[in-house]
Amino acid sequence: MIEIHNVQKSFDGNAVLKGINCTFETGKCNLLLGGSGTGKSVLLQCIVGLMKPDIGSITFDGTVFTNNKVNIRQEIRRKIGMLFQGSALFDSMTVFENTEFPLKMLTPEMTKEERRDRVEFCLKRVGLENAGNKMPSEISGGMKKRVGIARAIAPNCTYLFCDEPNSGLDPLTSLKIDELIHEITHEYNITTAIITHDMNSVVEIGDHIIFLHKGLKLWDGTKDTILNAEVPELKEFIFSSSLVRAAKRVDEQEGGLESISAEDPMNAH
Score class of each variant (00 low, 15 high):
55 I>E: 12
163 D>F: 02
126 V>C: 13
110 M>G: 06
69 K>W: 03
61 D>K: 01
100 E>A: 04
157 C>A: 10
47 I>V: 14
160 L>F: 01
106 L>P: 03
74 Q>P: 08
148 G>L: 05
120 E>Q: 12
145 K>W: 05
165 P>C: 05
148 G>C: 00
126 V>K: 01
66 T>R: 01
88 A>P: 13
91 D>W: 13
38 T>S: 10
159 Y>S: 07
54 D>H: 11
137 S>C: 11
63 T>N: 15
143 M>A: 01
165 P>D: 03
94 T>I: 04
117 D>C: 11
118 R>H: 02
111 T>P: 08
56 G>D: 05
161 F>Y: 06
143 M>E: 14
49 G>W: 10
103 L>E: 10
124 K>I: 08
91 D>H: 15
143 M>R: 04
140 S>G: 06
96 F>S: 09
56 G>L: 02
42 V>S: 14
61 D>Q: 10
60 F>M: 06
148 G>D: 01
68 N>W: 07
97 E>L: 08
76 I>H: 04
137 S>N: 10
70 V>G: 04
121 F>R: 13
83 L>R: 07
83 L>E: 14
73 R>L: 07
51 M>K: 13
140 S>H: 10
49 G>H: 13
108 P>I: 01
51 M>C: 11
97 E>S: 08
105 M>D: 15
80 I>L: 08
108 P>W: 11
92 S>T: 15
117 D>G: 11
78 R>C: 15
154 A>N: 01
121 F>L: 12
49 G>N: 14
64 V>Q: 13
112 K>P: 09
84 F>P: 07
58 I>D: 02
151 R>W: 06
153 I>R: 09
126 V>L: 09
38 T>A: 06
82 M>D: 13
93 M>I: 12
161 F>D: 07
139 I>H: 10
101 F>E: 06
62 G>L: 05
137 S>W: 06
102 P>T: 02
50 L>S: 10
85 Q>R: 07
40 K>S: 04
85 Q>A: 15
92 S>I: 09
46 C>Y: 15
124 K>R: 05
143 M>K: 06
136 P>G: 15
65 F>D: 11
156 N>I: 13
92 S>K: 09
51 M>I: 12
100 E>L: 06
44 L>C: 08
86 G>E: 11
77 R>M: 00
54 D>P: 11
126 V>E: 00
128 L>W: 10
142 G>E: 03
142 G>Q: 00
104 K>M: 12
36 S>D: 06
73 R>A: 09
118 R>C: 09
163 D>P: 04
117 D>R: 13
152 A>Q: 04
90 F>N: 06
93 M>Y: 14
134 K>D: 08
125 R>D: 15
155 P>W: 00
44 L>Y: 01
156 N>G: 08
56 G>K: 02
128 L>R: 07
41 S>T: 15
113 E>K: 13
164 E>T: 05
61 D>I: 07
103 L>Q: 08
144 K>D: 06
48 V>C: 07
162 C>Q: 04
60 F>R: 09
159 Y>N: 02
86 G>A: 09
159 Y>A: 05
116 R>V: 14
93 M>C: 07
128 L>V: 03
80 I>M: 08
49 G>T: 08
93 M>H: 08
79 K>L: 10
108 P>R: 07
165 P>V: 12
57 S>P: 11
102 P>M: 07
150 A>R: 04
59 T>L: 12
74 Q>E: 14
155 P>V: 00
102 P>I: 04
164 E>Y: 00
69 K>Y: 03
142 G>F: 02
141 G>I: 05
116 R>W: 07
55 I>F: 12
